[in-house]
Design a protein around this nucleic acid. Structure first.
Lengths: 162, 162
DNA sequence: TTAGAAATTGATAGTCATTTTCAGTTTTTT
DNA sequence: AAAAAACTGAAAATGACTATCAATTTCTAA
């Protein structure tokens, strides 16, 4: 299980980070068939750099199942999204990328250089939400947060960049 | 530029909240031509409900300049974005909407029912950023935050909804 | 294990937001 | 007012994503 650190966040390295098998189990438990195509998409998802576009997942998935088609990639991602196993990330150009879900209330940091993506938890913006509600009169139901910057590797390779 | 009142004073609100005229001034100061097409897009932007899609801006803009074309809407929005006069909002389906910028570090709340959009400021997530940096090792450079909920009017019309 | 039913698949052909191209027009400069 | 520069919009192209449908795979039940 995760270790509580001083700032209260869990370090999850040794925790059960669900892999393709765990996701497949969830999938079949929900009544979906265990198919070669779906398995290849799941594996592709974990072969990727924390997140990948449908086209990238197609390429990665074909290493496991050459007949895989793009339509099935989209359909599998839709099912995984419904089951909360995957989250859709938005890119500036409006295209999407998909990342495996590890934390229920996770958000993502994306490296602007190599696109490595890591989920983080502990997004506490309750105070911000409260001030927005009083500022605007809106009743806020959900929020969308993505962060961009440099991952540790890219910071080393390009010190002072960005 | 600004609304002249009967006694000749400017309404101070016009200074705080830039309208089409102020944006046009910025545009020409930056070296862009003052064209009928651009003026119609600027007016459309303020005729809208806080935010609008390119197609909606085309329709609104044609009220001021019937020959306006969609390509010019896109191009004008691109220029306005570069100048920081407009911000691109992302929708779940990957399409975009544009909102006039009022606050330099503003973010937006969007009504899920009527799509009214209001900018808010005072997003203080420095603490969240700091914890993300220590959790992930990333160096965060920017973030994206959008909130969704019900605007005051829709709360009244549909109490208890959503 | 097997046959039939049910679910899934992928090729093909859309759809739709956004971009590119280009010749003609408007705006700016002189 | 004329020439140069900037801008415009129609039409065509691009590319992500979705709908269709006949063929295949997986599941279920005996």
């Amino acid at each position: 299980m995760g270790v509580k650190t001083e700032n209260g966040f869990q370090i999850t390295r040794d925790q059960a980070i669900p892999g393709p098998d765990a996701m497949l189990a969830t999938l079949t438990k929900a009544g979906y068939s265990n198919t070669r195509a779906r398995r290849s998409v799941l594996e592709a998802l974990f072969d990727a750099n924390g997140q990948a576009s449908p086209a990238e997942l197609l390429a990665l998935g074909r290493a496991h199942h050459p007949a895989l088609g793009i339509v099935t990639v989209y359909r599998t991602l839709e099912v995984l999204s419904e089951l909360g196993l995957v989250r859709k990330l938005h890119q500036d150009d409006g295209c999407h990328t998909y990342a495996p879900v590890q934390h229920h209330h996770g958000h993502y940091v994306i490296c602007e250089r190599c696109h490595r993506t890591i989920e983080f938890e502990g997004c506490d913006i309750a105070a911000v939400v409260a001030s927005v509600e009083s500022q605007t009169g809106f009743q806020v139901r959900e929020h969308w947060l993505e962060m961009f910057g440099l991952c540790p590797d890219c910071r080393l390779e390009h010190p002072g960049a960005v």
